[in-house]
Amino acid sequence: MSLEKKERLLKISILRFDPNDPEDFPEMETFEVEEADGMTLYIVLNEIREHHDNSLKFDFVCRAGICGSCAMLVNGRPTLACRTLTAKLDEHITLAPLPLFELIGDLSIHTGKWMRNLNEHLETWIHDKENEMNFDKLEERMEPELADEIYEIDRCVECGCCVAGCGTIQMRPSFTGAVGLNKIARYHLDPRDKRSDEEYYELIGDEDGVFGCMTLLGCQDVCPKDLPLQSKIAYLRRMMLKTSMKN
């Protein structure tokens, strides 16, 4: 790296809109920020808020790529802003909120509400009515490989990127989306969840579920956690098909 390296002047265009203000209308606003070493969009947006416009709305929590709060469209592509290094982008960067979710303002969206509805619909928790737990006793055993496999797909952070990247959901808003299908795959894999194949079929065995997916697989392309969404959706399809044949 040369010592006289000149920092770039980044042009950050942000889609601004405050739905709480009846007089406001959506428009792009551009800010200029001098790039620094190791700069992420988290740093850029905070700098804009602190030095240019303190009304700018966006969501960060962990700022480490762990919590899934900060998903947005970066140059049109859904991704986690906190771990996006500006060095990897052109000097003109456009930012917009993820589509499909309720807008709180500017880049801030209500993914939490959407995900909660989804979880409610799919009942994403362990269903085990018979097995009374006794926490004084040794825990139930689990094959180590199976535990690892469950963890692998339990890593979803509910950021919403797969939803924003989904072609199907654009046309069919009631579609479960990869985030929901992945959760069903997770619980189906887990022997602690006692739901039957038929019960799962009830949840996702239709066009709003796994049969609605057009296999465009934008979800897989944009998932920041590199979850194996493609193979999980394929697996669920086979499973659901089997269940429907059985009945």
């Binding site: 928790w125 362990i126 085990d128 097995n131 737990m133 926490f135 004084d136 006793k137 825990e139 139930e140 055993r141 689990m142 094959e143 180590p144 535990a147 690892d148 469950i150 963890y151 339990d154 887990d190 602690r192 969840d193």
Partner: peptide, 19 residues
């Protein structure tokens, strides 16, 4: 603490296991 971790195992935490 052992009770709490077993409870969480029951609720679905995929704890890494002894091989």
């Amino acid at each position: 603490a052992p009770k709490a971790i077993r409870e969480l195992a029951h609720w679905g935490v995929p704890w890494s296991r002894v091989h």
